[in-house]
């Protein structure tokens, strides 16, 4: 049901783990649908210098978290804000239809982390 790229990101997740001194954090999801993601970002000169994630969820949730972190590392905050959940799914080569809405939330978590950072520096 998952393609090879999704399986690769699930098996070898990029940037998984906690960040102890993040510039911003964003959490999305709920227990009812079974996927909860938290994105940590470190921002320097308006760029995402480092990013990591913690995810409780299905294969699609873990793979999309991993893919997102790979996509936005080094990007400016404005560039990162433009990335959508669909972009993440497309870079994974697609996700099963049922997973597109429930487990594909990584970009939302990232946007929350950026907002969190911006609210702190203002």
């Amino acid at each position: 049901m998952y393609n090879e790229k999704v399986i690769d990101h699930f098996q070898n997740p990029r940037n998984a783990g906690e960040m102890f001194d993040p510039s911003g954090v964003g959490e999305v999801g709920n227990m009812k649908c079974g996927d909860i993601m938290k994105i940590f970002i470190k921002v320097e000169n308006d760029r995402i210098e480092d990013i990591s994630f913690l995810t409780f969820g299905c294969g699609a949730a873990i793979a999309s978290s991993s893919m997102l972190t790979e996509l936005v590392k080094g990007k400016t905050l404005d560039e990162a804000m433009k990335i959508t959940n669909m972009d993440v799914a497309n870079h994974l080569g697609g996700l099963p239809e049922a997973k597109l809405h429930c487990s594909n939330l990584a970009a939302d978590a990232l946007h929350k982390a950026i907002e969190d950072y911006r609210s702190k520096v203002q």
């Binding site: 998952y2 399986i7 699930f10 098996q11 649908c33 079974g34 996927d35 409780f56 969820g57 299905c58 294969g59 699609a60 949730a61 873990i62 997973k99 429930c102 487990s103």
Partner: peptide, 22 residues
């Protein structure tokens, strides 16, 4: 989460199932 666990087990050769929503 059950589906993630099933997937990981399957990749390691263990066939199981879950009551997870996913």
């Amino acid at each position: 989460e059950g589906e993630g666990l099933l997937l990981d087990l399957d990749l390691k050769g263990i066939a199981a199932s879950s009551g997870s929503a996913c």
